[in-house]
Amino acid sequence: MNSKLQELYDKYHQNLFQFLFYMVKNREQAEDLVQEVYIRVLNSYDRFEGRSSEKTWIFSIARHAALDYLRKQNRWSQRIFSAFDLTKRPILDTSPLPEEIAVQNEMIQQMYRCMDKCTVDQRSVVILRYIQSLTISETAQILGWTEGKVKTTQHRAIQVLKANMRELSEKEESIDEKIQLRR
C-alpha cells in the first residue's frame, strides 16, 4: 500500500472525517467523501510538491469535495422543489438525527439543526474553530484566508446560530404552552 497515503491517514483521517461529517451531516456521505479525498490525493500528489502545507492542501481537497457534493444536492433539491411548485423550503431539516447527535441533549440537537442556516464558509469555520478546536491562525491556514476573514466569518456564524437558536427555543415554548392549555 502507498506509504505516503498511510502517513496522511494516520495524521489527518479522523479530523477529515469529522469535518466532512459536520459539513454534509450524513455519515454514509462523509464516508464516501473521505474516500474521494484519498482518490484525489493519489491522483494529484505528484503535482502537490509543497505549494502549501500538507494539512492546508488535504483539507482544501476535503472542503472542495464537500462543496461539490453540496452544490449537487442543492441543484437536485431546487429541481424537486420547483417541480412541486413549493415556494418555501422547510425552515429546518426535519430528517432523523444521526445516532451520535440523537443521544445528546436537546440543545446540542438544536444546534446541529441550526448549522443548516450557516453558509458553507461559516459552517467550515465553525467546525474547524469550535468542534475541532483549531486556532484562528490554523483555521486561516487551512482555508487559505486571512485571519481577519476567519474572525469576521466566525462572528457572523455565531450571530446566525444565536438568532436561530433563539427562534427555535421561542417556538418550542409556544408549542409547550399550547399543549398545556389543551390539557
Binding site: 440543545m107 446540542i108 444565536k162 415554548e173
Partner: peptide, 23 residues
C-alpha cells in the same frame, strides 16, 4: 429547552460540546 436569551458565549459553549464523530 426554555432558554431564549442565548449570548455569543452560550453558542460557543454548545458548539464546543458537539460530539466527536469517528470513522
Amino acid at each position: 429547552m426554555k432558554k431564549f436569551n442565548y449570548e455569543d458565549s452560550d453558542i460557543e459553549n454548545i458548539l464546543q460540546q458537539m460530539p466527536e464523530v469517528r470513522d
